[in-house]
Amino acid sequence: MSRFKSIVLLMVIASLALAACSSAAATEAAAPAAEEAAPAEEAAAPAAEEMTAYTYADMTLCYPQLGAESDWRTANTASIKQTAEELGVTLIFSDAQQKQENQISAVRACIQQGVDVIALPPVVEDGWDAVLTEAKDAGIPVIIVDRSVSADSSLYAAHIGSDMFLEGQRAAEEMNKLLPDGGNILELSGTVGSGAATGRAEGFRDALNANITILDSQTGNFTRAEAIPVMEAFLKKYAGQVDGVFIHNDDMAIGAVEAIKAAGIEPGELKIVSVDGTRGGFQAMIDGWIQADVECNPLLGPQVMEMGLKLMNGEAVDPETLTNETVYYPEEAEELLPTRQY
């Protein structure tokens, strides 16, 4: 509520200011032209001489977040905001509500504002050519975060993210260990067509032992609400035939566990491998439901800011950076849970 009041107050002040400084407007109008030229200078200066090393306090970072569809995403948002606050980076943050058109328009707004760096977590791989070209023309480096894009790699500076294919492979290795004698498993996949779902599914199949059969696969859209009915229907259809389940994220795993509980199955009877490593997932490991959780780290704030600063200072950056990720097991879950931040 206080936020709303402050907006109203801002608007009132703004309209007063509008009346007061009509003369000032003329000078301000000239300002954007100067600002526009600035990025080009910034890009050129460090190359010429290391005189002006920028610090975090100079940086304006634009982060057009995709939305808030899962715990992973909210943790990612929190990480970016917290890191920016700690380092003193000016953050321009927006939320696209899972719509690509909103994300694109947010990038355009950032370009017009003349930010120093844009960090973009793309909703899907396609469709970024035009807006990335605009950013390049404006001299603003773009860091692709999390998922990758299909656009030409000359259009962006670097990619920081997880290798979804590798996560799938890791999950398959865990499943191979859990079911050494083979068996039948089910798959609860993420949003149809999303890079994470496709990558994890392909990686999983790539590394899965031949004696393990995937009986069925259905999407749960990465959400709990949809995972429960799908799992319920699965359990009735394949009652007694299933040995394990591969689930594409922890949110769906938590939902699926509810369905499994309701079916009267004891913890550990079904071997579950999930991806993410959220607190909910850890809790489920402690309770014995999940046997292995492949980490997909959302705490990308520090990495993104560090790379952004390097780009501003004209330093060379690794065009393809993978986040540090591991696999968690129930034995260590209890010990690690208090240290989990998401």
Binding site: A14, L18, P32, Q112
Partner: peptide, 25 residues
């Protein structure tokens, strides 16, 4: 006008035309 007053960069003409580009469909 309020937007432009709050965020001077919104006065760039391109911001106005971006409205058409972004909302074409």
């Amino acid at each position: 006008a309020i937007g432009a007053q709050l965020y001077p960069t919104m006065k760039k003409p391109q911001v106005f035309f971006n409205l058409f580009i972004n909302n074409g469909s």
